[in-house]
Write a protein that binds this DNA or RNA. Structure first.
Length: 505
DNA sequence: TTCCGACAGTGGGGTCGCAAT
DNA sequence: ATTGCGACCCCACTATCGGAA
């Protein structure tokens, strides 16, 4: 199959907002790929805007200068896939010059449209309005199988490409053969969110509240003494985490798949996320890291035990077995149907230094890969009144609007304004239109896509916490900042101070 | 007819490892 | 030594479509 065929479909998908039309276009191309003997796995990934190699060491900078495009399309999907694999290998060998030559070779054979599409694929910014959700439905339509069967297989297999290939060649019988495999990561279940505990507890039914640990999600596979550890995005990080491997090896099971969180602790208190994150992402001498920043292992779910798959079992049953298998590693948890009791637990967990709670339905199966109602996280919300220092022009659907705002707090001593970070979150289209006009009216000068403004507009910001920053002059930055509302009832002289923010560290 | 679940898009901060400067 | 880049941890929120109620 020609790459141009895939790109034509991508263009058709981007041109409509109707998901049904997107599915129709995608499924037709998938079927064409299967019938023509093209690699369905690769075509599926390409149609979803996913790079099969995941990473090849090339980003926007590595594609800033490209050769003249070809006049007419000639690239085949298989050639492109091979070329991208080769580029990834060269990156792994550290030969930047050779990698650059390989990138130039590939792009030199691509037309203008193909160059633009390849750039989107490689940077992961396809923005055609079709990701996983639409692709899974398209696979089902193309293979004439049940969409639920496709979803289930993708959850258990972790990735859509191989499932598409199986469905198109073997139909629903092939999908039924896709099962949880110990040693192969499956998609982790995700949580929705609620503003408070009372909202998360619906109608007097009993729920579990798990302590929400601010660390790194981990999926642990134990297979007769052999352990593999995967992150939320299914990367294998086993070699970096020897103490976690030891903890899993010591469990009283032959085979098991567990879901949990790793976190650095000191004197029984959780360390800031930056400490856990830095330890987990470092691939330096694991033995040294283990002694300097040991990680504690907490599990909150059990997906497989000694030959039995548990993803469809009710959570209560999975928790019972987890307590038997890993009694020393179960996350702090409360079962209750009383709002007051739940709120007390929430307060206790915060007092212990944790992030909040995750409210879970004891009846729910493990809905891998979905952000369903089975799990609901609750975290406290802080707010500050800050001033807008500058605004950036938006991109994509925000093109033409001033979008991302720079936030400043007051230095109580000098009276100067100190930048604490940026945010683009929480803005409705109406607010975007309003703030575009407002900030153009306050403009002082521009640098690139940043419009600097007279610091006169006060904004109320919500955020989850503060963290140390080497980027911003106050030494602190806000975590997950979002706009609540613009305030015209408060002068800039009365906004919150950087000292107050530092006090939250 | 209205409601609501799922999804895609639009980006945020920090850190590590590596190659080039 | 420092800087730039790519990769990958943590993420919130709104608009929209289309099936459910």
């Amino acid at each position: 199959m020609q790459l141009a065929r895939v790109i034509a479909t991508s263009a058709a998908v981007a041109a409509t907002r109707s998901r049904n039309e997107k599915v129709a276009a995608l499924s037709a191309t998938l079927r064409e790929a299967a019938e023509s003997g093209a690699p369905v796995e690769v075509v599926t990934d390409y149609l979803a805007g996913v790079l099969p190699q995941r990473r090849i060491g090339v980003g926007w900078r590595g594609m800033a200068q490209l050769p003249e495009p070809a006049d007419s399309p000639s690239l085949l999907v298989t050639e492109v896939d091979a070329a991208l694999t080769a580029i990834g290998v060269l990156s792994g060998q550290g030969s930047t010059a050779q990698r650059g030559t390989a990138v130039a070779d590939l792009f030199g054979r691509a037309t203008v449209d193909e160059q633009a599409w390849l750039r989107g694929l490689i940077t992961g910014e396809m923005r055609q309005g079709a990701g996983d959700g639409v692709i899974l439905k398209a696979i089902a339509v193309a293979a004439e199988v049940d969409e639920a069967a496709v979803r289930r297989a993708v959850m258990l297999a972790g990735f859509a490409g191989p499932v598409a290939a199986a469905a198109l060649s073997g139909g629903s019988a092939a999908l039924d053969e896709v099962q949880l495999e110990v040693g192969r990561p499956l998609r982790p279940m995700l949580a929705g969110s609620a503003p408070d505990v009372a909202t998360a507890l619906v109608d007097g039914d009993e729920v579990a509240l798990d302590s929400k640990l601010d660390g790194i999600r981990i999926q642990a596979h134990l297979d007769h003494g052999v352990v593999r550890l995967f992150t939320r995005t299914l990367d294998d990080v086993t070699d970096r985490l020897p103490e976690v491997v030891d903890a899993v090896t010591a469990l009283s099971a032959e085979t098991a798949v567990l879901d949990g969180e790793l976190i650095a602790e000191a004197d029984g208190r959780p360390q800031p996320f930056q400490v856990t994150g830095s330890r987990t992402m470092s691939s330096a001498d694991p033995a040294r890291l283990r002694s300097e920043i040991p990680l504690s292992t907490y599990f909150f779910d059990l997906l497989h035990l000694d030959g039995r798959d548990l993803v469809d079992a009710p959570a209560r049953e999975r928790w019972r077995l987890l307590s038997a298998v890993a009694p020393a590693h179960v996350v702090p948890r409360l079962l209750t149907s009383e709002v007051a009791e739940a709120e007390q637990f929430f307060a206790d967990r915060l007092a212990a230094g944790h992030e909040g709670v995750v409210v879970k339905d004891p009846q729910a199966p493990y809905a891998a890969g979905r952000r369903g109602a089975g799990w609901v996280k609750v975290k406290p919300r802080h707010t500050l009144d800050l001033v807008v220092l500058a605004v950036e022009w938006g991109s994509g659907r925000r093109r033409g609007w001033l979008s991302n705002i720079h936030l400043g707090a007051r230095d109580a001593e000098t009276g100067e304004l100190v930048m604490l970070g940026k945010t683009f979150k929480g803005m409705t289209d109406e607010m975007l239109a309003w703030q575009t006009e407002r900030f153009l009216g306050l403009e002082t000068h521009r640098e690139g896509h940043v419009v600097f403004v007279r610091p006169e507009q006060v904004v109320e910001i919500a955020f989850d916490g503060v963290q140390r920053s080497s980027r911003y002059p106050g030494g602190v930055a806000l975590r997950f900042a979002r706009v609540l509302r613009y305030r015209d009832d408060k002068p800039v002289g009365e906004i919150d101070t950087v000292g107050q923010v530092r006090g939250l560290l």
